[in-house]
Design a protein around this nucleic acid. Sequence first.
RNA 1: GGUCCUGUGGAGCAGCGUGGAGUGCUCGCCGCCCUGUCAAGGCGGAGGUCGCGGGUUCAAAUCCCGUCAGGACCGCCA
Length: 595
Amino acid sequence: MIRTHQAGALRRDDVGATVVLTGWVATRRDHGGVTFLDLRDASGVVQVVSRDLPDVHALRNEWCIKVTGEVGARKEGNENPDLSTGHIEVVATAVEVLSESETPPFPIHGSEPIDSGVDETTRWRYRYLDLRRTGPASALRTRAKIVSVIRRVMERHEFVDVETPYLTRSTPEGARDFLVPVRLQPGHWYALPQSPQLFKQLLMVAGLERYYQIARCFRDEDFRADRTPEFTQLDIEMSFLDEEDVFALTEELFAELWRDVLGVELPTPFPRITYWESMRRYGSDKPDLRFELELVDLTEHMQGTEFRVFQAEHVGAVVVPGGAGYTRKELDGWQEWARSRGAKGIAWLLVPDPATGDGGSELRGSITKLEAERLTSLPAAAGAAPGDAILFAAGPRRTTLELLGALRNAVARQRGLVREEEWRFLWVVDAPMFEPVSSDNPAVAEGAVAGWTAVHHPFTAPTEAYAATFHDDPEHALARAYDVVGNGMELGGGSIRIHQREMQQRVFDVIGLTRDEAQSKFGFLLEAFNYGPPPHGGIAFGLDRLAATLAGTDAIREVMAFPKASSGGDPLTGAPTPVTERQRKEAGIDVRPEL
RNA sequence: GGUCCUGUGGAGCAGCGUGGAGUGCUCGCCGCCCUGUCAAGGCGGAGGUCGCGGGUUCAAAUCCCGUCAGGACCGCCA
């Protein structure tokens, strides 16, 4: 190394040592006769002081330099308690410029928080400068730490790390594939994997018993703050297991991650809740338990009403504590919020509080034309106290619950009900096995079921109760699927797979997959299953979401080294780019093979 | 495919509703001064076709239409 020490690691013990440091000029304070430089390297920042080196006046921020000098204790009163190196400074005897720098496009210094007001476009465009900053860089370090803990836990349990192909066939998940043309077979394309699902099942047939991989996955779908076209999963599969093995492993892994990364002790085991209970109580299959605000079911209460809005399959509500003080504008805001989500709207009722005067003197709301009996008993039925507001939604059961679930989250955020310091994990189990094919085809009548599709994927096993009947009653069949949810975020999910041919065939029958189609799509897996497949199952965790959660950010871009923009492009390299006519020809892009 | 927000010297913002000279703030940048600062301080200075195109108007950063880029959300995505 061309240096002797790390700048940020120097302490009182080093006083008197002659050191050679390298790094970047974070800032300079030039007093004419004495000049201070903050020298930054990966370890942190140290103050360099120069009294008689004429060259230092020419230095500028972000120049890469080498400093030779002696570590000195700072005089009392000159110490900086905010700096871990604040008790010492390096008295420079020589400064060498390793390379000069343009003025950076945004301030760098060193100690900015992760999102310090610089426009993201600019940060991603100059990500290599962004990462000179402590906050953004520490997010990547957190991610590396997470990967390290993961490997430690997986190796402790004798999991085998196997790399599966990135150039492969389409996997049976629902997302669009990224396609890669193949020069040697014009007109034929690889798909980049949406997950290593089929390969890890093959590895179970192969008898590996315990597989894991930190695998890049690709889905050509639209963006969200927590979704990007390429992302990383911790992918796990085990043989001869049941759900308890997956739960125990996950809880051990999470407990160790939270302990080592954040110093937080997670209580285990995580509570479990069924999918439908979660929908009923929270309107979501990934409920945030850091606040209460459980949904109220008023379907019974509205049975037989003349009030048309509430003549619906499901009537539910969120009770907003202290919401009687809502202004008309705020209530209109909720209407707009609901409509922006494609709902017809939400009804509201303010319960007056005589003590504070909030909500006036009588029940007010958009539903006061409701039968008097029903109206006056409504606050009690909803569990609303004086001073509360009740926000209603009515309609088909599932969409109404989902709307109320989103409302629950929005209300909690708006009213500051989320206990931000808490970590609340849970398992959501017993998800439906199938859901109706959402058909935009006008030929399919409103409400009619055009067919069924696997909620999870078609290799997910039914629960014992539905093993014999799921093909006759796909609507109610439950799957041996599980999601792990933390603070309202889906951090991972998996299932116990089907390993019996007969059962697998019935699933294909339900989703309308013919033998030929199944054979052509994943005949290789079915063939493998002819050779004594073990009972198996697994789980996959979104590593980016895990890292973002542990790094304390909502945006998974922050824990990716070179994230994509929401257009799907790479702001730094400018990819994707058009290809030349010659490349098209070589890759056989325009060739249409006989199907 | 859809809805909404944003785009103003290098960075972050204000200005836009109710049109009137590129006006302002914090930082950065350049020069000079300065021997104990902590993202130093003082004085001076440079730097902007207000994303782009069109329209309305005597006059557009401001109003209208289109478009591009970025972001959030719905659809989609287990």
